[in-house]
Amino acid sequence: MKSHRLRVGVSPLIMPDRGARFQRPFSAFTLVELLVVITIIGILIALLLPAVQAAREAARRLQCQNNLKQLGLALHNYHSVFNCFPAAESVDYMNDTTKDIRGNPLWFVILGYIEQNNLEEQFDYDIGYSNWLTLHPEYIEKQFPFYQCPSDDRIVQYSYLRDYFGCAGGATPANPQQPRGFRGLTFSDGLFLPNRWRRFADVSDGSSSTFAIGESVHVSKFGLGPGYAVSTQGGPCPWWGGCGCAYPQGQETPCSNPYRWSLGRGFRSTYYAINSNILPMADNEDADAPFGSYHSGGAHFVFADGHVGFINDTIDMAMYRALGSIANRETISGVSY
């Protein structure tokens, strides 16, 4: 006579029954069956997880592209108003050469064109960002999500990081006799340089093949080495970091000598390839940091015409530098990168 308990499906492994010891239960799972089912479900989840992660990363990339697009539109709106692009940094307090020469970076100037008029109106263009932030320390660690790529996890820890950097050239040295400034390589052919207000007419390589702003996470991705500030702080890239010019000497006007440009806080050159790991960086090399991103295989750029493109890290260096320069007479067809 069979046990009733077995018929309701309780496994003999869980509820051993003397009478049922040598009988095969009709409606119960054995341990092996259970394991097989769990394994199959596990495999299905394992198949699904990468797809879910990829979808999340795709959404983050889209967000990043959108941020860059907004910056591109802001540059265009600025150009419509002033008939020029903003300078990387404008320094015009000529008589105040005793202070450090840090003027008004691009990142403040375009705030009014990305719906941050309130902050832009508070900013004092007469004293420069460094002095202004000492008066308004509450903005030093303020987070601006439109300056951040969501794929950069470190924004959780360092809320003030900025992932986007203006392009300061990369093909033609600013001073061929002395290409290395006191803070790294300087170039004369980028869209953004200190006290240079470019117009569309200056971009004779074509605005659709010239970088305006791109992603750079080098410092947060690789650390900075024994250089500027503390590497764990994210190095020289808070949102407000523009560039500066060291004290002019003799008859120089501020920012007239490329040797004294300090660009690494807000601008990048295309001299080194995307996502080059060029650690360790010394304190006199921080303008050498490359563009790069946490997206696999390249980085996003917004071009001078406002379109956003993804540049692969396998791009030819001559092509990459040509894209970084505004007027080097290269012809680049749109399909070649």
Binding site: I140, A229, Q233, C245, A246, Y247, R260, N284
Partner: peptide, 22 residues
């Protein structure tokens, strides 16, 4: 090798310190 000015230790110090010529 650069022998330069002492480095700022954090973001706040950095704002106050200004640019030092290496």
């Amino acid at each position: 090798r650069a022998s330069g000015a002492p480095r700022a230790k954090n973001i706040l110090d950095e704002v106050k310190s200004g640019i030092k010529e290496a």
